[in-house]
Amino acid sequence: MGKKRLGHEFYVFLAIVSLSLIIQARSGQFFTLNNIVDLMVSFIVPAIFAMCELIVIISGGMDVSFPAVASLSMFATTKILLSMNYTGNVFFAFLLSGSFGLIMGAINGALISIFNLPALIVTLGTQSIFMGILQGALNAQEIAEIPKVMFDFGNAKLFVATNPLNGLKSNMSSSILILFAVVIITYVFLHFTMWGRGVYAIGGDSNSAIRAGFKVKQIKFSIYCFVGIVAGIAGMTRVCMMQNCQPNNLIGMEMTVIAAVVLGGTSVKGGSGTIIGALLGTFLLTIISNSLLLLSIPTYWQSFFTGLIIIIGTGVTSFQLILSSHRLPSMRKSKNEA
């Protein structure tokens, strides 16, 4: 498709490059293999989340329940596998966690599509419910020892990167393959299926989508089901990578993921957004949270920087919109009539 101007993605990319250069200049440690690998590894889970949030936001919705979905799915799965002393394929663990996620996603989807309620508020409510089940009903505590199959999967590495200067080693976790798979699936869904085009159509104008013949309710419902499955898988990935199961570890992540997706150029009003943008946005926030140590800034500055980046990032796009709307309304039209 013809692009006539540099996309938002390009500017995020520029921001990443300049930030990396600054960190490199200050610490000399940024462009080392082990740092890059570390970054990639901590990028995996947020990036998977970003994929599901991207679809939701394109459709004009907002989901804040996915960390709760992920936590509950991963905890329940780990508990069940432990109790049955599971030794089979790790695939089953992901399947089970994804299925739990699917059930929770379906609840979100049903409330949003059938009752036509605002997605943000529905998912705030279900988030609370899922956390209530996790912490109240299941009385979740940290599980220090996870099933061996999961442990092994989390330990598996594609390669090891060594920093020649100080000998620090970083493992490239195999879990990154899961991220690749999720990204490819999301890409295919969004670009090569009528379902995916329907997501964009609903975000653009849901009444038109109904009239054009898109099954809007079904699509909306399935979006949140998709989010549920992917969140379940992301939760499982997290447990495997962390080598233990911490039920409260993901809470609060929804905000940074939303910020990352929006930072990547996705409009909160729905209808536009790209996978590349969402990934770049997530990567930018990952760099910030990972690189404070390299810059010898105490970690308690992280929240501050994250907030600052969210405000600046969203501010730049929003301010451009304000400026363009200050121009005369007729200019647009006359340009196209010519």
Partner: peptide
């Protein structure tokens, strides 16, 4: 942020939430 810069309220306050608690954390070292 909302009126002059035009950031949607949910994002503006999401960001400022991080910013405000970030400052509190910095002041108290957590």
């Amino acid at each position: 942020l909302i009126s002059k810069i035009g950031i949607p309220p949910i994002l503006a306050t999401l960001g400022s939430m991080q910013l405000f608690s970030g400052v509190s954390i910095i002041l108290s070292k957590g």
